[in-house]
Design a binder for these strands. Structure first.
Ligand code: SF4
Ligand code: SF4
Lengths: 138, 138
DNA sequence: GATATTAAAGACTCTCGTTATCTATAATAT
DNA sequence: ATATTATAGATAACGAGAGTCTTTAATATC
């Protein structure tokens, strides 16, 4: 479970797309401007999200990106996996039989993974909205 | 909590040093040969372990490295920290107030860290010895 | 069907951290 | 004094990540 900047951009974009009114699409030009990235670079990241089925893309006039139908089930880990692939932080290529170092490291990494598989993107979006509404009522 | 090959070499060395008879020392030449590394490269790793107080070094004839007095308390995380420093996998430099992405990622990483702070090196050494003795008795 | 718009794909460069080597210096036992 | 061993610094080789440019494919609108 590596973790690079690209994943962070992906998370930001996902959160942004979840906020979009149902059915609306937004192009890579605008998304790139928001995050101050070059459109072509962000485009590669978005393509990975598309291939993973997390977002949908339509080329052409009035095209762009929108969140896929399954937005309520998307976890943090889904996004990370879409960008980084299914890798391990600990990567010993030798694999001695019954190696306890490897077992320990994998176990620890698994704990992190479990946590990220349990966290839905929609949860933090709702939580942020709730906090904003409290502020407004004060 | 980064994790590079150097940390893996450090873990191997620590385990090896724990196995040494009390009071014995071993030089970097031999340690490097075992792991098939260049001595100078491994030397830098060992120096970090020394500065972290996990092992002790004595230069000169009959010198070398040995495990420090506190071997029974050394955790996996201690070794990782000695080599990689105290870093975070998730490293957004912006830190927007109350950012839930950052909070979620940090929380997950913390889970991994906790696990590695709970695992003692001595535990896997003993476990490996126990398994070997079972095999021998069969 | 022609045109404008937008995503996808490929080749390529730049940068940076890790890995690794070489050399010189400091410390210690004999 | 001498041999041995760790430490430190400079620096080169390498690969992964970050980022750009250009070309191609798909789609709506007219
Ligand atoms: S002991 Fe474990 S971590 Fe070390 S080389 Fe063997 S498999 Fe890899
Ligand atoms: S929203 Fe969170 S992760 Fe994104 S830039 Fe701000 S602080 Fe960083």
């Amino acid at each position: 479970m590596k973790y690079s900047n690209a994943t962070n951009y992906a998370l930001h974009t996902m959160v942004y797309l979840i906020h979009l009114p149902q059915g609306n699409t937004v192009g890579v030009q605008e998304l790139a401007k928001i995050q101050k990235l070059s459109p072509t670079y962000l485009s590669k990241i978005l393509t990975k999200l598309t291939k993973a089925g997390l977002i949908e893309s339509t080329p052409g006039v009035k095209g762009g990106y929108k969140i896929s139908r399954f937005q309520n089930e998307v976890t943090f880990y889904d996004v990370i996996k879409a960008i980084e692939g299914d890798t391990n932080l600990f990567d010993c290529s030798i694999h001695h039989e019954g190696c306890l170092i490897e077992e320990t490291m994998r176990q620890a990494e698994e704990n992190m993974k479990k946590e990220l598989q349990a966290k839905l993107l929609i949860d933090i979006v709702k939580k942020a909205e709730a906090e904003r509404s409290v502020e407004t009522n004060q």
